[in-house]
């Protein structure tokens, strides 16, 4: 029952993920990506018994980040006719980057000790509950958690600086040190 449900959800998710690439219209791509996130969340909620992670995935990715994507794409009014053809250099770089990622993932999958994973699953259904998650996150994984939050802070500060830079009045004396005045 659970296995067939997993295969169904996984198939639907992968199908939508393929459609993200196959869709000609960027808005359709984004909408397929939203459906992909729903598929991933369904997997978290129904198969892995981690409703918190699933719902947060929907809130953050489907509800916020993809809305921003859609916002930008709608604002630029991209469509199939306006899209210029990509040069071969892009294709080669893209294939290289994607291939490297694939290699890393395949290597990671190869090294997983499947027996210990399936043994952990049977130890209890409360792995994904909020209390367990919170305790683990703030005790065993406190350092990675805090480092990740600092990373977000860096990204926010970077975005603010990028957005501010253009508004500085550029006079001859300031061009060489645009940030020092502010």
């Amino acid at each position: 029952m659970l296995t067939s449900a997993f295969y169904f959800i996984a198939f639907v998710t992968v199908f939508f993920a393929v459609m993200v690439i196959a869709a000609k219209n960027p808005v359709h791509s984004v909408l397929y990506l939203v459906l992909t996130f729903f598929g991933i969340s369904a997997n978290y909620i129904f198969i892995l018994d981690a409703p918190f992670v699933g719902i947060v995935n929907i809130i953050v990715y489907a509800g916020a980040i993809m809305v921003l994507f859609l916002f930008v794409i709608m604002l630029m009014n991209l469509n199939a006719e306006a899209e210029h053809r990509k040069s071969n250099a892009f294709l080669i770089v893209g294939a290289f980057a994607g291939g490297s990622l694939l290699l890393i993932v395949v290597d990671a999958i190869r090294k997983v000790d499947w027996k210990s994973v399936s043994g952990q699953e049977s130890s209890g259904g409360a792995i994904g509950s909020i209390k367990v998650l919170g305790k683990v996150l703030y005790t065993d994984y406190i350092l990675p958690f805090e480092v990740a939050s600092v990373l977000f802070l860096v990204a926010i500060v970077g975005a603010v600086i990028l957005a501010r830079k253009e508004k500085l009045p550029l006079t001859v004396g300031q061009i060489s040190h645009p940030v020092s005045e502010s």
Binding site: I55, I58, A62, V67
Partner: peptide, 9 residues
Amino acid sequence: FAVVSVGIY
């Protein structure tokens, strides 16, 4: 919260 944020679509 999740349903509301999806409703915007």
